[in-house]
Simulated assay, not measured.
Amino acid sequence: MIDIYTHRQGEGLTHTQNADVLPGLLEDRDRTTWVDLEEPTPDETVLLESVFHFHPLAIEDCIHGRSLPKIDVFDSYLFLVVQGVLLDRKRHDFASTNLSIFLGPNYLVTYHHQPVLSVRSTKVLLAKSDNVLSRGADFLLHTSLDFLVDNYQPLLDEMDEIIGSIEERIVTTDGKGVLKEILEFKRPLPRLRRVASYQKEILNRLSREEFALVAPGLRIYYRDVFDHLVRVTDLAESYKDMLASALEAYLAIVNNRMNEVMKLLTVFSTILLPLTLIASIYGMNFRRLPLAEWSYGFEITLGIMIAISVGMLVYFRRRRWI
């Protein structure tokens, strides 16, 4: 599906889905045009080469959609690949969606195989006001990137909530059943930090005096988005540390529980040791054994064994070993 938004001073914002008007729109240097290709058909993908004359390698990256976030510089345009994210709570992971962007002197082209929330948010904003498109393609790019980075915040909030739940259950349930959850949740955090770091480098370059296609007055806006991504990477790193601490707490609880079991078994073994010794002595096949010929010998021996057991339990209790 193709959506074409165009703005010219005095005409305002117009929207069309007719790709035949693109050559005329691009020739008008006083007009800003945004072309969004969502789940494009092969005929719509051909426009990247036939109308815009983009580099084949950039088009290949768009079609395959497997490239990491990056920014490439061509003669008359910039090519960016960024990634939006969405948390999958059931899998304790997040899905990333590639968004390919071409920034030219008077146009912006976005290409994506799946719906991207930041693109939809930009369209909603355009429906309310044409101010975004009237300020140029570079400002429109900033708006899309700003929405994309803002969408990381719900992901971070949900991650914080899940980690808090894990930490609470470690304490309240002695950590039962959370080890798998901790290990599953640790995997996406380095990937989130890596993706955010790549995009942080993109925003850092856009905020400097490196690209003529970005107006000097807009670089501070890109710097603001860059600061947001710095916060994302910092939070991802802190969540990684929190999960590591949660894992250590879980292992400490397991070890403590194992120590309690071993202590209890040791107490029982220690109590049974003298009783076993007495039983072994009286189990020997000798004729002369103390109390062996006495009619109350069994009861006295049993009483001695009970007294030893009680005495040892009292001693262990006073020493606070049990």
Results as ranks from 00 to 15, higher is better:
I63E: 13
G311T: 01
I278E: 07
L37N: 09
I308Q: 12
E209R: 14
M305N: 08
E168R: 14
R257S: 12
N259A: 13
R169Q: 09
P190M: 06
L179W: 05
F52A: 06
I101K: 04
G104D: 01
V132C: 13
V261L: 15
N259E: 09
M262A: 13
E210I: 00
R29T: 07
V310N: 11
L126Q: 08
Q199G: 04
E248W: 02
L68H: 13
V109N: 12
T41R: 15
A212T: 01
T122E: 03
P115Q: 09
G217K: 05
D130G: 07
G104C: 03
L99F: 10
I163P: 14
R91I: 00
L155R: 14
Q9R: 14
R317D: 03
L155K: 13
L189Q: 11
D36T: 02
L126K: 07
I101V: 14
A236Y: 05
Y107N: 06
A19P: 04
R219I: 00
L125R: 14
K186R: 13
L48W: 05
G12D: 03
L140Y: 02
K200F: 01
L68W: 11
Q9E: 11
E161S: 13
D160E: 13
Y77G: 04
F298D: 09
R187D: 01
L57S: 12
P216T: 01
D234L: 06
E161W: 07
